[in-house]
């Protein structure tokens, strides 16, 4: 069997985030929604920051959103990204409300702008981890 060549940092899921990463593996973008006050939240947490309820359910999001802000990495900070520069790291504001850090891919970094509509795509990194990334909606 071929060795896995993935050489970038990988998230280590916690009890709170495991359902999120499990869903990503099935190409579903999810977040928690508070059972008591209805606030959607991301990143995953044990408690609702609005009402302190610990009751929450996972739900699938549309995967659509827009670029709230972004930066283009020109410098290599980690050897795993040596072949990636320049790459876009963006804060995506999802239509459901939560904001999520990710990458905007399949685009010339120089034409990314705040407000650009995007949708989720999934990139398998390892057998355990699939990363949610975003592409321009038009593409």
């Amino acid at each position: 069997m071929k060795m896995n060549a993935y050489n970038k940092p990988l998230p280590i899921p916690t009890a709170d985030s495991q359902p999120f990463w499990d869903a990503c593996r099935e190409s579903k973008l999810t977040c928690q929604r508070c059972d008591d006050c209805g606030t959607a939240r991301f990143p995953p947490h044990h408690v609702c920051s609005n009402c302190l309820s610990v009751n929450a359910s996972w739900e699938e999001m549309s995967g659509k959103g827009s670029v709230f802000s972004f930066t283009v990495f020109r410098r290599v900070y980690d050897p795993g990204f040596a072949d990636e520069v320049p790459y876009v790291v963006a804060l995506i504001e999802l239509d459901e409300g939560p904001r999520m850090l990710s990458n905007v891919v399949s685009i010339d970094p120089d034409i990314v702008v705040c407000g650009m509509p995007v949708k989720v795509v999934f990139e398998k990194a390892t057998e355990e981890i699939t990363l949610p990334k975003f592409v321009p909606t038009e593409s």
Binding site: P9, P11, L101
Partner: peptide, 25 residues
């Protein structure tokens, strides 16, 4: 840490770059 390094988000300058981009916008 999750939701950070896996997307190549490193270093203190990147945080402030987000703010600068937003301020420009």
């Amino acid at each position: 840490e999750q939701f950070r390094f896996e997307f190549g988000y490193f270093g203190e300058m990147a945080s402030y770059a987000f703010g600068a981009t937003r301020h420009m916008h």
